[in-house]
């Protein structure tokens, strides 16, 4: 991959600056409001990266990724609130059980491939969403979700004043997920993932078991997603059914495609920008500037999905590399001119 020699040091400086930001006097990031927004954005960046591992690197179009994100979240909140386990053991148990769930669902879904795989994972995820939102079994409290019991977790996770800790935890989660993904995709298993995406038959002919490697990728991505779900539980303070819906997976797909698949940083940027944009676009729609436009135009414009959906169609049809792809194309042009 085309690499700029200053990109790694700059990234290091940026991460240190972000970590230090809540301390450095009066800047935007010393306010809890933006800290919260950015914490959520970092987590979606990390989640998009796990989806990139699945979709971009391994070529598995899964519509069920949100299921594991939500299962980590719900299992953790249930274990903590019902005093089943101490909070840190609850986190480990939630990730472990979600991983087991991923092994089961992955093994069943990977009997199919390609487009059918997409449909089947969608069906499983929808079943999960129904179980959660209909309160099947009486644990999940239906549409209202489950609030995290503040007495059962360390006090640094609670309260507006402590938002900076959540900001750090989210940033740390993003960094850790980034390095794990980097390590996996550069490992020999990662090469097999990429080979599966490009030519599955050839991998099988070489004597490797395609299904086993696909399952590995599926389970690793799901395990990381469930951990991100646990952190999201801390940041948002409650588990809600909307985190389990297919809309989340579709949002992840948008993040990865808009940011650019297979470059890792593209997915992260896509996730962060999408997360911030979808809240900002909502604010923008309430501005008075739109009131002078007739409703036939202003109506759709007030829906973030309209702008993002059009952008998404454009990128899929005309600019398949997304943002990072466009960046590399531009760099290539600049270099070849020199």
């Amino acid at each position: 991959m085309l690499r700029w020699k200053y990109s790694r040091p700059l990234l290091g400086v940026l991460i240190i600056l972000l970590f230090a930001a809540p301390f450095l006097g009066n800047n935007p990031l010393s306010h809890p409001g933006l800290q919260q927004t950015m914490a959520v954005a970092f987590l979606y960046g990390a989640l998009a990266l796990t989806y990139d591992l699945l979709f971009g690197f391994t070529g598995l179009l899964s519509f069920g990724h949100a299921l594991f994100f939500a299962s980590g979240m719900y299992l953790a909140v249930l274990f903590i609130n019902h005093d089943v386990l101490v909070w840190w053991l609850a986190v480990i148990a939630a990730v472990a059980l979600s991983t087991v769930l991923a092994i089961i669902i992955g093994s069943a879904s990977l009997r199919t491939g390609g487009i059918t795989f997409a449909m089947v994972t969608l069906a499983f995820a929808e079943a999960g969403h129904v179980v959660i939102s209909r309160d099947f079994g009486g644990f999940t409290n239906g549409e209202n979700g489950v609030a995290l019991n503040a007495d059962k977790v360390p006090s640094i996770f609670i309260g507006v004043f402590n938002t900076k800790y959540l900001f750090w935890i989210s940033l740390a989660t993003l960094v850790v997920v980034y390095f794990i993904t980097w390590w996996i995709t550069e490992s020999s298993a990662g090469r097999v993932f990429a080979a599966l995406r490009d030519n599955e038959t050839r991998v099988a002919v070489l004597g490797l078991k395609p299904t086993r490697f696909k399952l590995l990728s599926f389970v690793i991505a799901a395990a990381m997603a469930s951990f991100i779900g646990v952190v999201m539980l801390m940041v948002s303070g409650s588990a809600a059914p909307r985190f389990a819906s297919a809309d989340v997976t579709i949002a992840l797909l948008l993040m990865v495609i808009l940011g650019g698949a297979v470059t890792r940083w593209g997915a992260v940027i896509g996730g962060i920008v999408y997360s911030v944009a979808s809240t900002r676009l909502q604010d923008l729609s309430q501005t008075t500037a739109l009131h002078s436009v007739p409703k036939i135009i202003s109506g759709p414009l007030s829906e973030p999905a309209f702008t993002l959906g059009l952008l998404f169609i454009f990128v899929v049809m005309f600019a398949p590399g997304g943002f990072s792809g466009a960046y590399y194309a531009l760099r290539l042009r600049v270099i070849s001119k020199k």
Binding site: L253, S298, P300, I313
Partner: peptide
């Protein structure tokens, strides 16, 4: 038809269409 034989991209683009149609109807 512009995405002839690119099955994954066809699925993705239909996701985009469903988002846009949903948003237009919700906006109106």
């Amino acid at each position: 038809t512009r995405l002839y034989e690119r099955h994954i991209d066809q699925a993705l683009v239909t996701v985009g269409i469903s988002l846009v149609v949903g948003a237009v109807l919700a906006g109106w």
